[in-house]
Design a protein around this nucleic acid. Structure first.
Lengths: 234, 234
DNA sequence: GAGTGGTCTAGACCACGCA
DNA sequence: GCGTGGTCTAGACCACTCT
């Protein structure tokens, strides 16, 4: 279970950039230099740099170098980092409005389920994320009831789901898929997000695949895009 | 200007999958087999497969193989392929509602511009995409007025902007960034998309970087998400 | 021309799945 | 135990930018 070299390198520079050790426009050390510094080869260095580029932290320019980009200001919800990562912990709060319950999958579920998932039933709960005391989004999460012994007893209030899954169940998000629509809030949603009925919101239906084959994290998210917006790279 | 091997491989399998030569769940030939078939090495094969995986066409599973995924049904607008690629040409029509004009950049432009772009001014035009005669989205595009001699004379009606830029100006999209919000339609937008005022729409502000450094394609898109939705992978 | 990233070769060892 | 994808080495040549 040791960490690959490329991941160490990737995390190191991700941290350096996000901590502000580089300014936008700065050049990272060249790939050959990094090979020397970290005693590795270009294939490995390039794998790390490619991930940084996909995430938008740097931009590679042929013949010139790896250029640090300006930091993003949107909600990085179009990525694997989870919703939390773009805000300082003290600015953000996650409130549980429905504690986890075990039940059958909804009949009109928005992604096709494997037979294994279908049989296992699901654990579902509902959370609201607030920024500086203002509701930002409502997230209903569905997990297949597999590998999750003891999950029901965990208090999720203001905790990171991804952290819990990783540390207590060794489940790690790997990739995902999402569908996005614009819809207006009905009365129930409006009450929860403290907005007017018929206010426009983004609706996301997500499936996140994990290292455990057959264990996917599903969620339905209603997101306000007044003070923030969704941001993604491609 | 010859095509890299990995790209040939990538395009070949992309085509095979999208044409239906594989069903969801099928395994692609193993990486070692592809090395033999295409007389290349694993690094090259893996680069092609990694791109297919990022696009969601396959899913790699350690110890098993590369599994073909179900085809997507959303608008692939969260990717580089352009809006057009998910629909058959006969189903889709692109209507010009404002032909290209040269002018200064709007003062409240949504992405910071380089000095070079700022000085050059912009070419802007407005298009509506229809699926089966029904308006789907309104796209206002801004191009920096650089390298684009003769562009004003091109008839864009029902043509692919990306194709024109590639073949006539050797400009190729490389990567991009987008911001997404939910907003309600004002009267002008409602008229253009043939919907009611205050109907919810997705609003995208995009910047697409190209192989020409300093030449970015900007667009503002208002998209209906009734019959279709946006879809993306991460 | 020197230095950068882009592509590629020809190997190697490991971790995982499946029979 | 065998075949799969995941990581890595140690080179090579090319295309591009900058001076």
């Amino acid at each position: 279970m040791k960490k690959p070299i490329y991941k160490t390198l990737y995390l190191k520079f991700k941290q350096l950039i996000e901590a502000g050790n580089y300014s936008a426009g700065d050049l990272l050390p060249s790939e050959n230099q990094l090979c020397l510094d970290f005693n590795t080869t270009r294939a490995t260095v390039r794998k790390a740099m490619t991930e940084l580029e996909h995430e938008g932290l740097i931009k590679k320019q042929h013949g010139k170098g790896s250029i640090v980009q300006v930091v993003k200001k949107g909600i990085g919800i179009l990525s694997l980092e989870g919703t939390s990562s773009n805000f300082a912990p003290e600015e953000m709060y996650t409130k549980i409005i429905h504690a986890p319950v075990q039940q059958q999958w909804p009949l009109d579920f928005w992604y096709p389920l494997s037979e294994q998932e279908q049989k296992a039933g699901c654990i579902t709960f509902e959370r609201i994320r607030e920024i500086k005391g203002k509701p930002l989004l409502l997230e209903v999460t569905y997990l297949p009831n597999l590998y999750l012994g003891g999950f029901m007893e965990i208090n999720l209030e203001n905790k990171s789901l991804f952290q819990i899954l990783l540390h207590q169940f060794n489940i790690k998000p790997m990739s995902g898929d999402q569908k996005i629509r614009a819809i207006t809030a009905d009365q129930a949603l409006a009450d929860k997000l403290k907005i007017e009925k018929d206010f426009p919101t983004l609706h996301l239906e997500r499936k996140i695949e994990t290292n455990k084959i057959g264990f996917n994290i599903y969620s339905s998210i209603h997101c306000l895009t007044v003070d923030y917006f969704l941001q993604g790279r491609f």
